[in-house]
Write a protein that binds this DNA or RNA. Sequence first.
DNA 1: TTTTCCAATGTAAGGGCTTGCATTCTTTTG
DNA 2: CAAAAGAATGCAAGCCCTTACATTGGAAAA
Lengths: 341, 341
Amino acid sequence: MKERAVTIYDISKQAGVSIATVSRVLNGSENVSEATRQKVLAAMEESGYTPNAFARGLGLNTMKTIGIMAADSSDLYLAKGIYYLEQLLRNEGYDCLLCCTGYTLANRIASMNLLLTKKVDGIILVGSNFIYENEEDNKYIYDAAAQVPVMLLNAALDAPNVYCITSDDYTSVFNATTKLIEQGISEILYLYNSHSYSGKRKEAGFRDAMKNAGIKLKEDSLLFYKGAREDVGAVTAQLESHWDKGHHFKAVIASDDTLAISALKFAYRKNLQIPEDLAVIGYNNSFLAECVTPELSSIDNRLETLCQTLTSTLMGVLGGNEMPKQTVFAGELISRATTPA
Amino acid sequence: MKERAVTIYDISKQAGVSIATVSRVLNGSENVSEATRQKVLAAMEESGYTPNAFARGLGLNTMKTIGIMAADSSDLYLAKGIYYLEQLLRNEGYDCLLCCTGYTLANRIASMNLLLTKKVDGIILVGSNFIYENEEDNKYIYDAAAQVPVMLLNAALDAPNVYCITSDDYTSVFNATTKLIEQGISEILYLYNSHSYSGKRKEAGFRDAMKNAGIKLKEDSLLFYKGAREDVGAVTAQLESHWDKGHHFKAVIASDDTLAISALKFAYRKNLQIPEDLAVIGYNNSFLAECVTPELSSIDNRLETLCQTLTSTLMGVLGGNEMPKQTVFAGELISRATTPA
DNA sequence: TTTTCCAATGTAAGGGCTTGCATTCTTTTG
DNA sequence: CAAAAGAATGCAAGCCCTTACATTGGAAAA
């Protein structure tokens, strides 16, 4: 299959210059006369030369690759983030090594090492679940950051060489909750399934909004689902069982669109009118929101903006510039048909 | 940031052996006595040695990386495929370089070259849209296949070093259509938005099933939507306009779940009961199908099986074995609430 | 014209690892 | 017990680039 490849030596011979000169035009060095540059380029063109990435890597100690870690690249939201990042990084001349880690720490440590072994120039952690409550569990991030910049999307961690781009989840949920209350709906159920960094921020936003409105928060106003949120049937069932135990509510704010979908299904089963009997607000404003009927109101956390900022910050860091350690963007409730006008 | 890394020389010194021996234990060579192996491993462990991937690549001419190309990694179906592949390949010790190419040929050629430059060991094209009608446009695939094995998921192309794993889309749609007809529904609209390899197979399945049942196919029985299928609103509008022109139907078979979602929305707007007034069948059996109400009947093309087979075939090829050039699996209609029982 | 200086180019020393071949030492065989 | 075979290890030549430093030649300065 692979015959001996064309090397820099072949080009140097063909163009009648030294390999150093060839290397210089390869790397866009200034100190090459236009005439030689053309000669070399012609030779490359003619023989279909492609520099050997490994040798290049050895010399430059980089292969222009960024590692992207996500728990599950098929999650609607994470997939979108990965997509944006890949596009943006490619524009900057970087390739992406993708690592789906699942949710266990052991896997994450392994993946992290893998990426480091492959000499990526930076690592992006997509999703807030990469930060652990137990400070020791975050060691794998600190270790990685000792070697390459680590970017967190939707999570925050104060450490050297770690940069965080987040959405202001707290305020988004606070505002959404407040808005519902102002519309006269105060029996709100907060449905969530993660204690991640942003998960806790969202929850806090809910609690504070309720408190702020002077509504005493019963503990049955929060429902935690401990399984995979993609298991729509199970989440729906849990909502039903909650309701059937006498915990009624007039609205659901979910920490994720997928969970909100279950709330919609729940309403359908219970024959509740949306939004009259039950208002529903999701989070992430994913494609799902437009797919369901009635269309789901959802909090948009401006994923594309986050990704753009993350990328430019990373590029800045790699370029040796001082960059902000944390950047926060405001979210926004997109009102559709599951909330009162 | 980066202090001088531990190299094979350090280990060799520390263990009191030659670097050749260290390299041998690194590569699991047979000819090393157990005692030395242990000594070396201990030294590695102690000094936290990580072999330099570039140097390794230079020597071995591989970095155990597979390139994955997909038009859009955030597409629900493609994302799932990428996810499966990434997991499977990782299990085999390979990393994945992800390339989202969009739908233009120029981008694809560029991406392909990029992957080849980075010396991937194989390339996987996820999605049937990588094959072009115009034979010349497929040159980029042949070129790539001249260097590394190319795997096609859901597409077929007969060429050296190209391996295809597909679902029998033709039969799946043929059967689904036939089943509807047997249930007494013969006014069926086939809704599609792609002329890709599998797109054409599906369409043929529909046409043949109708013909086979002796139903004369009016050309208004097929509706092609030329934009992005994610634009649910636009697809819905086009369905409405089609209907309003007098082209009525009692069922929709869509070439993709996302399109089917639009059919559901259309029914809702027209106040058609599902499945009594309108039956709907999607394709891919994606997560979307379970999210909507009523839940969508959809053709499952066994993506996970396809990915497994693709991976094992690729591993076989890389291992120098003769492997089947084309593997086809049967699909299956998953009946949910949008089709009559 | 001679001296400086600088742009353009070449020389050669790595960068860290793999591997064919040579060498040494241990076993087996006759 | 000598000779042959085999196992374990070392030597050194790559693999293909990058780049600090040396060299050259011509233009600018004196």
